[in-house]
Design a protein around this nucleic acid. Structure first.
Length: 615
DNA sequence: TTAGGGTTAG
C-alpha cells in the first residue's frame, strides 16, 4: 500500500502531456514548488521524468531542474538517460551516467541504467564507447539481464560487428524469444541472412515479430523473392500478419518491380483493415513509384494523413526517377512550407530532380543551401549527384572542375557520373580520363569497362574495344550479365542474357523475328555499336537481339492483352540500340512500354521516350 | 517509477 501511494503519479504531474508548452510546464513546476510537492525527491524525479519523456526534443527544462537538484534519485537520472537516448542529443545521456557514478548519495547504476545506455550507444553508433559500456555493465554484474542482452545484440548489429553479436548471444545459456529474434535480425542486418534463417528455423516458438524480423531480413538484403515466399508461409501457418509485415512485403515488391503483387498487397491491407501508418503509407507509395505507376504513387502520397520526412523524400525521389524534375522541386517547396525539416537523403532526391531536367542553377543553389541553410554536410552521394547534374547538362568542364575541387577524395561514383556524361556527350578524351580514375580506385569496376568500350564502339574504334576486352580478360573482370524481369498475371518471369530455358522460348524467338521484320519495314537499321566486342555485323545483330529487355518485351507482346502496358525491370542501363528499338516498338505495335533500368524509368509511347534521350 | 526483438526515403 505504502509503495503504491509513494509511486502514484501526482495529479498535477499527470497534466504534463506531449503537447504541453514550455510556458505551461513552467507554470506547473512553479505550482508544485509552491505546494512543497517537489520536496519529496521521488516526486521531483517523477516531474523531471514525465517532462523529459513526454517531449524528447525539449529536454532543456528537465536538464536544468535536475542539474539544480543536489541528490536526485536513480529513477530520475535513469529517466534522463532514457529520454536523451531517444532524443536528437543522445550523447547527453553520459552526463547523467557520470552523475550516477560520482553521486555522493549512495546511488549506483542498475540494469535500467545500462539498458538505456546501451541504446544510446546504438543511436550514436559509438564504436569505442559501446564496448566500454559493455565492459562496465559486466563489471557491475548486469550481463545476465535479458533486456541488457538484447540491447547489446542490437547495438553490435548497428555497429556492424557480427562477431560480437555471436559472442554475446553464445554466452546466453537459454536465450529467450526476444534475444533470439534480436539475433535473427542482427545476422540479417550484418549480411549473414543464411545463418539468420537457420536460427529462425530452430526457434522453439515464433511470434509475429520473429516472422517479421526474418521477412525484413530477406527484404533488406535484396532477397525479395525469399521475403515474399516466407510471407506466404507465414500466412499458410496462420500467423497474424500486421502492418509491419506488409511494409517488408511492399519493399520486396518495389525491389522486384512486381506491380501485380504490390497491388495484391495493397488490396490485402485494405481487406484486412491494417493500420495505415506513415511507414506503411510510405512503403506503399514507394512500391507504386518503383513499379512504374507514379500517378498512383502520388495519389497514395496525397491521401496520407501524416507525412514525415521519409514520405516527402520518397515522393520526391519517385518523381525524379520518372523524370518529373519540376514537380519534384515543387514538392520540396511545399515540404518546407509545411515545416518538415529536410535531411541528407531529401537532398539526394532534390538534386536528382534537378539533374533529370537539367536545372543546373537550381541544383547548385540547393547544393549550397545544404550546409549554409540546413547545416547538412554534403556526402559523397551528393557530390556524385552534382557531377551528374553538370555532366548530363553538357557542362563537362564544370563537372570536372567540381570533381577537382571536392573537399574529399573523389570516389568512383563521381568519376562514374562524369564517364556517363562523356558517353552522352561523346567526349572520348575526358571519358578515358574518367575511366582511368575509376579503375585506379576499383580495378574490377565492370561498369567502367563497359561504358568505355561502348564509347570506343560508338566511334568505331575497334582497337580501343579490343584493348578493353583484353584488359578485362587479363584482370578476370566479367561483364555483369543483363537481366530483365516482367510480371504476367502475378507471376514474375526473369530473362537472363543467353538463357534459353524459358518454356515459351520458341514463341519468344518467333515474336523477336516478327519485331525485327516489322521494324525493318519501318526503316530501322540496327545500331550495333553498344555490343562489347568487335564481331561481324550479322553476329552483332544477333547479339543485340539477345539483350534481355527485348526478349522480355517480346514475351510481353505475346502474353499481355492488347492495350495493357508492358512493364520491364532491367538490372543494367538500357543500351542505345534497345532504347531506339523500344521507341519504335511502342509506335509500331501501338503499345506503352515502361522500362525501369538501373538509373531511372523510361516511358515509351508513340515512338518517343520520356527521358528525351538522356539517361 | 523507468526497460528488450520486427517496418519506410539514397
Amino acid at each position: 500500500m505504502n509503495s503504491l501511494r509513494c509511486f502514484a503519479k501526482h495529479p498535477m504531474i499527470s497534466l504534463i502531456e506531449s503537447d504541453t508548452t514550455l510556458k505551461e510546464l513552467k507554470q506547473i513546476h512553479t505550482q508544485l514548488l509552491l505546494n512543497g510537492v517537489l520536496d519529496d525527491p521521488h516526486l521531483l524525479g517523477q516531474f523531471v521524468a514525465t517532462a523529459a519523456l513526454k517531449n524528447h526534443d525539449n529536454l532543456d527544462y528537465s536538464n536544468q531542474v535536475l542539474d539544480q537538484c543536489e541528490n536526485p534519485t536513480l529513477f530520475a537520472l535513469n529517466s534522463m538517460i532514457r529520454a536523451h537516448c531517444k532524443s536528437s542529443t543522445p550523447q547527453k545521456s553520459f552526463h547523467f551516467y557520470n552523475r550516477i557514478l560520482h553521486s555522493n548519495n549512495n546511488v549506483s547504476p542498475d540494469n535500467y541504467t545500462f539498458n538505456f545506455l546501451v541504446r544510446t550507444c546504438s543511436q550514436l553508433l559509438a564504436r569505442e564507447t559501446g564496448p566500454s559500456v559493455h565492459g562496465a555493465l559486466i563489471k557491475h554484474g548486469f550481463e545476465h539481464d535479458p533486456h541488457v542482452q538484447s540491447g547489446l545484440i542490437f547495438m553490435y548489429a548497428e555497429l556492424g560487428c557480427l562477431s560480437s553479436c555471436h559472442r554475446v548471444f553464445g554466452e546466453i545459456p537459454n536465450p529467450d524469444l526476444v534475444c533470439q529474434t534480436a539475433m535473427v535480425s542482427a545476422c540479417a542486418k550484418c549480411g549473414d541472412v543464411g545463418f539468420a534463417r537457420e536460427l529462425f528455423d530452430v526457434m522453439p516458438q515464433r511470434d509475429p515479430i520473429a516472422w517479421n524480423a526474418m521477412i525484413a531480413g530477406y527484404a533488406q538484403s535484396g532477397k525479395s523473392r525469399k521475403a515474399l515466399d516466407l510471407f506466404n508461409l507465414m500466412q499458410m501457418m496462420g500467423v497474424r500478419v500486421n502492418e509491419v509485415s506488409m511494409v517488408s512485403v511492399l519493399s520486396a515488391c518495389s525491389h522486384l518491380g512486381a506491380l501485380d503483387q504490390g497491388r495484391w498487397a495493397h488490396a490485402y491491407i485494405e481487406r484486412n483493415k491494417l493500420r495505415m501508418t506513415v511507414t506503411l503509407g510510405t512503403a506503399l507509395m514507394d512500391m507504386y513509384a518503383k513499379c512504374g505507376n507514379v500517378n498512383k504513387a502520388m495519389e497514395v502520397f496525397w491521401g496520407m494523413k501524416e507525412k514525415n520526412v521519409y514520405a516527402w523524400t520518397s515522393a520526391m525521389g519517385g518523381l525524379a526517377m520518372h523524370g518529373f524534375g519540376e514537380k519534384c522541386l515543387k514538392l520540396f517547396s511545399l515540404m518546407k512550407q509545411e515545416g518538415v525539416q529536410p535531411n541528407e537523403v531529401t537532398f539526394v532526391s532534390v538534386l536528382k530532380g534537378c539533374s533529370v531536367v537539367g536545372l543546373v542553377k537550381e541544383g547548385r543553389e540547393n547544393f549550397e543551401s545544404m550546409s549554409e541553410v540546413y547545416g547538412i554536410e554534403p556526402q559523397l552521394e551528393h557530390y556524385g549527384c552534382m557531377v551528374d547534374l553538370y555532366g548530363r547538362a553538357g557542362c563537362l568542364d564544370e563537372a570536372l572542375n567540381f570533381i577537382n575541387n571536392m573537399p574529399v577524395k573523389p570516389h568512383s561514383g563521381a568519376w562514374g557520373a562524369l564517364l556517363n556524361a562523356c558517353r552522352m556527350h561523346k567526349n572520348m578524351e575526358l571519358g578515358e580520363l574518367a575511366s582511368r580514375k575509376i579503375l585506379e580506385l576499383e580495378a574490377k569496376n565492370h561498369g567502367a569497362y563497359v561504358l568505355l568500350s561502348n564509347m570506343y564502339a560508338d566511334s568505331k574504334n575497334w582497337e580501343g574495344v579490343n584493348s578493353v576486352r583484353e584488359i578485362m580478360k587479363a584482370k578476370g573482370v566479367r561483364k555483369l550479365p543483363g537481366c530483365s524481369v516482367i510480371e504476367v498475371d502475378g507471376e514474375v518471369h526473369e530473362f537472363i542474357v543467353g538463357d534459353k530455358t524459358h518454356p515459351r522460348h520458341d514463341e519468344i524467338e518467333m515474336m523477336l523475328a516478327e519485331i525485327s521484320k516489322r521494324l525493318k519495314l519501318s526503316g530501322y537499321v540496327a545500331n550495333t555499336n553498344p555490343v562489347l566486342f568487335d564481331i561481324e555485323e550479322e553476329e552483332k545483330e544477333d547479339a543485340l537481339c539477345e539483350h534481355t529487355e527485348k526478349v522480355a518485351i517480346a514475351f510481353g507482346l505475346i502474353t499481355l492483352k492488347e492495350g495493357v502496358p508492358i512493364r520491364i525491370v532491367k538490372n543494367l542501363r538500357v543500351c542505345w540500340d534497345c532504347h531506339e528499338v523500344t521507341k519504335m516498338i511502342s509506335k509500331t505495335f501501338d503499345r506503352e512500354i515502361i522500362v525501369r533500368d538501373r538509373n531511372r524509368f523510361h516511358h515509351f509511347k508513340d515512338g518517343d521516350c520520356s527521358c528525351k534521350g538522356y539517361w
